[in-house]
Amino acid sequence: MQFFEYIERDSVMHSLNPVVKLVSIFLLMLAVTFVYEPYTPLIFSVLAFLQIIIMGRIPVREVFKMILPLILVLAGITITSIIAFNTAAEITPAVLFSAGRFIITVNSVKFGLTIGLRTLFFLLYSMLFVITTDPTDFIISLIRQLRLPARVGFGTLAGYRFVPLLGEEYRSIHQAHRIRGLREDKGAVAKFRRFRKYAVPLMVTATRKAQRVAIAMDSKCFYAYPERTYLREVKIRKIDIIYSIIFGIVCIVIFLALRNYGLLAWGYRSLR
C-alpha cells in the first residue's frame, strides 16, 4: 500500500534529526519550485539520488524498484503540463506543432519538462526523507523541536500503527463481499455505490480501535504531568548543524553554477 517506507540502516542520513532533515529539504524544495527550467530540478534530482544511495546507503536497485511504478505518473504530469501551457501569452512563440488553435511550442515542452522533472525531484527528496526517517523519531522530533502537542503526536502515531491492519481489513471485506454474492460492479456509478459498503465497516472498525487505543493510552497515565520525559533522545546535535551547513553550501554552489552557465531562470514569466 505504500510507495516507500522506512528502511532501517546505519547511515549519515539516518542519524540526522528528522526536523532538521525536513526543514532543509523544504527550503530547497521551496527554492526549486520557483525555477522554470528543467536543468535545476534535474541536477537536484541527481543530488537527491546520490544522497539516497551514498549518504543513506540504500541499494540502487531498491531505489529503482520504488521509482518504477511512479514513472507513468511522472510522464502523465509532463504531458499534461505541455498541453496546458499558455502559449497565447508567449511573446515570440517557437511553434513545434499546431492543430487549429492547439499549439505546442518550445516553451511548452520546456515547461512540461520543468514540471515533470520537478516532480521527480520532489519524489526523490520525499523518498530520501521517508526511507531514512524512523516514523517514531519523526513524530517525537515534531513534538520536541516543532512543539507539536504531545497528544497530537502520540495520537497520530497510534493511528499510523493501524495502516497495515486496516489495509488487511479492506482486503477481508472485499473477499467477504464476494462470498455474499456481491459481484464486481461494472461502471463508475455502481463502483461508487459500492464505496459505502467498504467505507462503513472500515470506519466502524477504526472507530472502535480508536476508542480502545485512546482508553489504553489514558490508562497509562498519559498527561499525568504537563511535561514528559523521552526514551528516545531526538535532539539537534553537532552532526545536524554540520550537515545543514554543508548541504546549504552545496545547494548555493549548484545554483550559482547554473546561473553562471546561464541556465537558471526564475518564475513562470521567464517562459514567455
Binding site: R151, G155, G159, V163, K191, F195, Q211, A214
Partner: peptide, 27 residues
C-alpha cells in the same frame, strides 16, 4: 481535546488513506 478525539482524527486519516489507495486500484 481528549486523547480519544486525537486518535479518532488520526484513524480517520488512515481509513481514507486506505480507501484512497483502494479506489486508485478500482479506478
Amino acid at each position: 481535546w481528549t486523547t480519544l478525539d486525537v486518535v479518532m482524527t488520526a484513524v480517520v486519516g488512515v481509513v481514507f488513506a486506505v480507501l484512497y489507495w483502494a479506489y486508485n486500484q478500482l479506478f
